[in-house]
Design a protein around this nucleic acid. Structure first.
Length: 359
DNA sequence: CTAATTTGACCCTT
DNA sequence: AAGGGTCAAATTAG
């Protein structure tokens, strides 16, 4: 349960970040949209986890697997205009020349638990999902095992995808933004001709779910605020948001009629759908009805919610607008925008209270 | 205790 | 042989 709440808290944190960026910068709509996706992804993960705990059906029944899009897919859909994407990234011709593969919208705009340690060595303490060790003294290492290791393979035949990711625009700008997944660093290497070392990450849940997703993070020499992130393999773990971005049933009706895959259930990713449909898909994904039990929240904040104009009671019925489904008048709804942008700081307080309450 | 990072060594590909 | 990718012991944080 804590992990789900943590995800919700993370979503609010990201929303807060976006708020700051909206005020401080003039980011393009593509960037803002991508950030919004990141926020939604966090919510979706929470939903997924809540489903796992059997807390209501939430959007379970409303989440068929026909339309399946990972974060990169989403961003690809957002960036059919390469020039626009480049502009959003502040990408220079040099960057474009640097690219080895077709450009995709940066998956990294989601902000990562990834903490490229080569950037952290001096600043320490902000790394990943755990504190991370301090640099070890050379003398502390015992002689390496001389046992030969066999069967090690490389050059996986899985798909590889390279994206350019801007460093975070707020907070520690030394870090590439979250991409929605949790990664565990398993290596770092100095690369010939590169000023910065390359970091290697694999999915945190590799051991639990056999998830083989990996990524390499390389800071660019000519633009230290850009990272080249190469993804290898797909997420198959629970934390993957891939299954979280599906059409709610109520919203699928229209899409299903148009989708060549919905009838067959072959699970064609949204990236293979027409842009218009894909947009509807993501719009629907953004419109998940969410019911949150806030009975544990401080009474004062419950009152705050109740007084927010949404008429919330002890149960926060946060129902994000579902355009294609009739609004349920039996319980009040809360617009996702309200949730994300009006309650950001307040939610921090709530969840910190919750944490204290449960310790 | 568990999980994460660091980092030198090992192994594979070119 | 060189360079890149991975392993795993050591270490640290929560």
């Amino acid at each position: 349960m804590d992990d789900a709440l943590s995800q919700i808290s993370e979503a609010f944190r990201l929303a807060g970040e976006l708020m700051g960026e909206l005020q401080a910068t003039q980011n393009g709509p593509a960037y803002i949209a991508a950030r919004c996706h990141g926020i939604v992804h966090a919510y979706n993960r929470a939903i997924r986890m809540l489903q796992h705990y059997g807390v209501g059906d939430v959007a379970a029944a409303a989440a068929p697997r026909e339309l399946d899009a990972g974060p990169r897919d989403i961003l690809r859909l957002c960036s059919t205009d390469e020039a626009g994407a480049s502009q959003f990234l502040g990408e220079t011709p040099a960057h474009l020349a640097h690219r080895k593969e077709p450009f995709h919208m940066p998956a990294g705009v989601f902000g990562a638990r990834v903490a490229p340690q080569h950037t952290m060595c001096a600043g320490a303490g902000v790394a990943g999902t755990s504190g991370g060790p301090m640099r070890r003294l050379p003398s502390s290492r015992s002689p390496p095992a001389v046992q030969p290791r066999q069967g090690r393979r490389r050059r996986e035949s899985g798909k590889r995808e390279m994206v350019l990711v801007p460093a975070q625009r707020t907070g520690n700008t030394e870090l590439p933004p979250d991409d929605g997944y949790t990664w565990r660093k398993y290596g770092q290497k100095d690369i010939l001709g590169s000023r910065y070392p390359r970091s290697y990450y694999r999915c945190t849940h590799k051991n639990y779910y056999g998830c083989d997703a990996k990524k390499k993070v390389q800071r660019l020499d000519d633009d230290t605020f850009m990272y080249e992130v190469t993804y290898c393999g797909d997420h198959s773990c629970l934390t993957s948001i891939t299954p979280l971005l599906m059409l709610p049933t109520a919203s699928t009706t229209t899409s299903a009629a148009n989708s060549p895959t919905a009838a067959t259930g072959s699970g064609l990713p949204t990236r293979d759908l027409p842009m218009e449909l894909a947009e509807r898909t993501h719009s629907a994904a953004l419109s998940m009805p969410v019911k949150l039990d806030i009975s544990w929240m401080p009474a004062s904040f419950q009152g705050h919610l109740a007084g927010s104009g949404t008429g919330m009671g002890s149960i926060a019925n946060m129902k994000m607008n579902v355009s294609t489904a009739p609004r349920d008048t039996n319980f009040p709804t809360l617009d996702l925008g309200d949730v994300m942008f009006n309650f950001g700081s307040s939610m921090d307080h709530i969840f910190s209270s919750y944490d204290r309450h449960n310790k």
